[in-house]
Design a protein around this nucleic acid. Structure first.
Lengths: 141, 141
DNA sequence: GTGATAATTAGAATAATTCTAACAAAATAG
DNA sequence: CTATTTTGTTAGAATTATTCTAATTATCAC
């Protein structure tokens, strides 16, 4: 996987401000946790990780901060079969692969134009703003 | 949409038996409700519809029966962004389109081989048994 | 600094689903 | 065909993930 550059505190603040939101220590830590280990953690898992650095944080704040990061397009929510929502800081269009044995989620890069190609195959009158592709199976690696 | 032939009571019983399950009046009514109006109802919506015909049925039974129909591969579960699970008797491989304005879900037929083509593009070591494609947007019709 | 606005927090509330235990129906054994 | 076992249904409690509420705290604009 290509390591993505860490966003500066200022860039994060700017992104938040663009959506009318403020930066806070909680939001910053949570965003850094998501970029540090891109394993699609749930809110509970994020809560556990952030508590190590900021023991007084509450689960409600974790949910609120994650929502703020989703609002300002720094993080995407990933859902799989009514399991808890997972959070993904990979903003490039990509699909997800769900390993049925381990429960792990992997990002899958898609050939450029594939999503547009899929959208173009919709029947007349269907205008898709987004396409979500999820693979389910077993990953060898 | 292509109207699909109604399955006979015997065929339903056979399908259930194949998975070691019995047929019951509840399972039969619920399956008929799903095939009658293929609008991807939630368990609650199925409950409301079945109560018209069988007022004494319980919501737990609706969940149990839907699960039985899923077990014997007569019905598929469809999930969208942590909303309640929806039930779909369309067994042909297909995608779903979620209308953001109405909340309706539509089946989208896919060109034959497209799912296999997608699976073949996975990195080495990723073996997908299933691919799920969900479009989100606005349907004109 | 002061008032307004926004964010955090703890705990209560909610929604969808699953579990539990009791009862009923159906299949199987004697 | 009756007894026994198995399976299915039911009502209500429990669970899980998430959201809401109200109080407190922090930050911003002046």
């Amino acid at each position: 996987m290509v390591p993505t550059a860490q966003m500066t505190s200022e860039a994060l603040s700017q992104k938040l401000a663009d959506s009318g939101l403020r930066n806070t220590p909680q939001r910053e830590i949570i965003y850094s946790i998501l970029t540090k280990k891109r394993d699609h953690p749930t809110a509970d898992e994020v809560f556990a990780r952030v508590k190590a650095e900021m023991p007084t944080i509450s689960l409600a704040t974790v949910y609120n901060c994650l929502e703020a990061l989703v609002q300002c397009n720094l993080v995407r929510q990933v859902n799989f079969e009514r399991g808890p929502t997972r959070y993904c800081p990979n903003l490039h269009p990509h699909a997800h692969f769900h390993d049925e044995t381990t429960g792990s989620t992997y990002d899958i890069d898609l050939p450029p134009g594939l999503l547009e190609q899929l959208k173009s195959q919709l029947p007349v009158g269907y205008q898709a703003s987004d396409v979500e592709i999820t693979f389910r199976g077993h990953a060898a690696s």
